[in-house]
Nucleic acid binder design. Structure first.
Lengths: 201, 201
DNA sequence: GAAAAATATTGAACGCTGTTCATAATGATG
DNA sequence: CATCATTATGAACAGCGTTCAATATTTTTC
């Protein structure tokens, strides 16, 4: 039996998390099993359940961390600019999202995996993280809306965000063969942002 | 042992399909298991594997049928109209898609379920069905593009389709809390279509 | 220091999954 | 009736998440 004074409870919980992250990273989400994690950290499967309520609970923690990484990447685009600069920033942001999807493919896919259920009464903090996703885009959209258009402004941020995600998701999961040889996804994203912004103005 | 002359091989295959469809319809995708289907049709689990290569194969057939239903619903919108009429038709089409997602929720979700893999060398026919999805929208977009813009025209259809789907998917799966109390998804879809078309013109 | 209480870890066990395949039942043919 | 091909079977395999009585370890009490 593993010695329990080798580490605090939190250290062990973190070890489980890190092992899980590594497994997903190297072998994909399907390879993430309780027994696999246990083997990796040299503990019995049951130990994981002393630290996490369930595998779903662990999934949620991993998604939370992924959202933190994504939020970090999407923030830092210069706001309070002219429309032209803001438009360029939005394109850059969209590409940044696509890059993230590639860099953290398995984790990004997990965010939208239906098996990973987040319908938990105590997961308000999770939805707050999700809400943060819109803030950077909302800031960039400021020059396109005047006072009294707050509702449209907010809606536009969510629509444009969802649209870029929709393109990215269908492409990356091969659910739709979206693009012909002639046009790439990044071209499409640019066209989407351009057209949408032109439609606002 | 079930009598094999009660039905042809095709009839039995269809019975499996219908049982699967009913299970998904009534109990959701997670309830769809080989043993469950077998019980429903009064056969042993192994029988299913005489008719379908694997459960994944069955999933693919079900998705194919869902795509047929979806394609049927998205076709029939009047094309060759003025821009204004075409725009209205596009909104109607988008709402039609949203309605379909609600009416066939479990099946529609299956289309985008990552567990249901379609990376099969022999599934060209499947991707053809997927490609058909764009045709109706492409027709409606005809008045917005002149000769020589075929590439943009094709791209626009895919972008708008993906965007509407993105909105619909994130909303329906509760992955994003997209909408505030003040605005609904249908409102957003209308705004998306309007703005995008305005951006083209 | 010894005994008792509290805590952490274990791993077999449960019920489930998709899938396989030797065996048995059935239908068709000669 | 006997032979043969086809079809149906269901136990078996390896895996899954999860539970929980039993065991090992640490802490507290006396």
């Amino acid at each position: 039996m593993a010695r329990r004074s080798d580490h605090t409870r939190e250290e062990l919980k973190d070890a489980v998390f890190k092992a899980a992250w590594q497994i997903i990273s190297e072998e994909g989400f399907d390879a993430l099993t309780a027994r696999h994690i246990a083997k990796q950290i040299g503990y019995a499967p049951g130990t994981i359940y002393n630290l996490y309520d369930s595998m779903d609970d662990l999934y949620l923690q991993i998604n939370a961390h992924t959202l933190d990484l994504l939020n970090a990447r999407l923030s830092g685009f210069a706001d309070n600019q002219t429309k032209a600069v803001a438009a360029a920033q939005m394109k850059a942001m969209a590409h940044s999202y696509m890059d993230f999807a590639r860099d953290y493919r398995a984790f990004w896919l997990m965010l939208f995996n239906l098996k990973v259920t987040i319908h938990r009464p105590d997961a308000g903090w999770y939805h707050e993280k999700v809400d943060q996703l819109f803030a950077p885009l909302e800031k960039l959209l400021v020059p396109f809306y005047v006072q009294g258009q707050e509702k449209d402004h907010k809606m536009a941020a969510r629509i444009l965000w969802s649209s870029v995600h929709g393109l990215c998701f269908l492409q990356e999961t091969d659910k739709l063969i979206l693009m012909t040889n002639q046009s790439s996804v990044s071209e499409s994203v640019d066209y989407l942002v351009e057209t949408f912004l032109k439609g606002i103005a």
